[in-house]
Design a protein around this nucleic acid. Sequence first.
DNA 1: ATGAAAGCGCTAACAC
DNA 2: GTGTTAGCGCTTTCAT
Lengths: 342, 342
Amino acid sequence: MARRNTNRRVGIADVAEKAGVSHATVSRVMNGNAAVDPGIAARVRAAAAELKYQPNPVGRSLALGKTDTIGIVVPDLANPTFQAILRGLSIAAAQDGYRVLIADSSEVTSEEAILAGEARRRCDGVVLCAPRMGDAELEELAPTLHPLVLINRTTIATNTPSLSVDYGQGIQELAQHLVSLGHRRLVFLSGPEHSASNRQRLVGLDQFRKEHPEIELQMLPGGSNFDSGHECTDAIIASGGTGILAFNDLVAMGLLSGLHERGIRVPEDISVTGFDDIPFAKYTTPPLTTAAVPINELGSLAWRRMREQIQQTGDAPAQAQDEFSPRMEIRKSTAAPALKPA
Amino acid sequence: MARRNTNRRVGIADVAEKAGVSHATVSRVMNGNAAVDPGIAARVRAAAAELKYQPNPVGRSLALGKTDTIGIVVPDLANPTFQAILRGLSIAAAQDGYRVLIADSSEVTSEEAILAGEARRRCDGVVLCAPRMGDAELEELAPTLHPLVLINRTTIATNTPSLSVDYGQGIQELAQHLVSLGHRRLVFLSGPEHSASNRQRLVGLDQFRKEHPEIELQMLPGGSNFDSGHECTDAIIASGGTGILAFNDLVAMGLLSGLHERGIRVPEDISVTGFDDIPFAKYTTPPLTTAAVPINELGSLAWRRMREQIQQTGDAPAQAQDEFSPRMEIRKSTAAPALKPA
DNA sequence: ATGAAAGCGCTAACAC
DNA sequence: GTGTTAGCGCTTTCAT
């Protein structure tokens, strides 16, 4: 035997004994599965209530082969974007009686696969959020994780549902916005090297360059958080650019703060754009022009895609590839550039 | 029987068969428990590797009576403070091989007990974060949840460990700071009614009033997020106060934004303080003076307290009541008031 | 050192 | 309609 019977929690057997029926009958009334004599059912319910019996989910999980839990692995729980996704996912899943187990890889790429695998074993499915791992590894991992939902990343081989944002288009629209305001010298403050979404922005900007050969567009290495934006302040000033495309809102906010410290006015002297439209973006001074990603929808849609797979009775997969287009949010951090003395 | 044997994942039985040993032996080598013949052990490990066998955690949990998972229930996952606690908890727990299951009560007080109970059944313990429920209910619930860690809330009867922040002291220091700058008309923008931490601030301010009868201190109803701060802008202006104590940083930021829109300068015309020192606080314009709560420590300490209970071999409880004192973070949103024309 | 078997708490097939 | 029993995948006692 496994454990001694000392101070066990109340189990189905206790209820059965008190109601004078078998385990099976108790199980039946608790789950409302088969038809049970109303009188007996009442007796069982009374016993259960009196003993404050609550079925043990671990036992149920083992018997049913499902845990009613899904896992999510994110690169960094400190990032507002991932927090919002987690929140949307958690709330949507809860509505269907599912819970979520979290795993933070802390941007350690090599941990992602392990965490995802562990999560999958404990859960009925996994959502992988902006995984940093290489394509080959992802391709190999994906089938072992099914049901799987991918966010901000796609797989070609396996047809797992994915949600993505058209960062390339968004950054182009932002650049276009600056140009139409009159800016001719743009700077892109880029994000983490291994970020797929950064690569998409880069591709979008290449496209932009082709369409606007007359515009100067510099690239500056950056990061993904406040501090990287703040640290780039001097490089930005030195660049001579008047329209700055920050990798995301966090970076833009760091930059805003740095420029403010140097006495450079936004948007009078320099225009700054962000990306994501995190909740704080409209409260910066000045409020940030950005490309809004429907971050709350992402989480809830991720759940819907997961649910579709979990409930799938076995027929055709028909995995969806959802792509969101960011929505321009023009606020006060962008304006026409000052007329240059030169 | 429960499920049909169709497409089952690889289990301990498969490894046992392949290695030509019993389940028990496989279990032994997987857990390194009893001494196993090195040759057999190697064979088992080879078989396990070849089959990519990973023990099923649900089966283990049932046998072991533990899940290596803890639950956390928070009132609102959108709140940066709770996000930070969740993050700290998750990272600390992960270091010890534990995962965390989240439950968001969405500020629905009546859901808290249910969510906590469900979480507890699936996990080895629960941390209850700033529960909104009444004292009586908490008192009754606490024993059924053990092991339990309370954050921002204490229980008298049961001796469950709790982590709290001395909000009363923090708000007094903030008020003191404003007074020493020369402010004589203060306003407190209060938080949610059922928030225990709001009550603590109120108590602290009562104390402050006694010590400073010469200072005018008004109370204005507010909330806990950006929008409530923003909405209070006109009321603040109308109040005639020059030193504003916002319930927290979020509220302060909303207010900052509202004041900026009305052309009121901070800190020249009005000084504003926040509370918590969320990551964004030092990037507002102007950077926010606030009382810093060691929010990352809270999460990791919560885990330590939980671990102490889980590992407790049965001896004396000795439950800790940890109280943190906020640290003043004087930045640029507070200054001496302008000399009044009157 | 190893295998057989019991048991963790539950659900469901089967027999009555 | 209800009880009996097998089985979910694992750990651990007990006997060898």
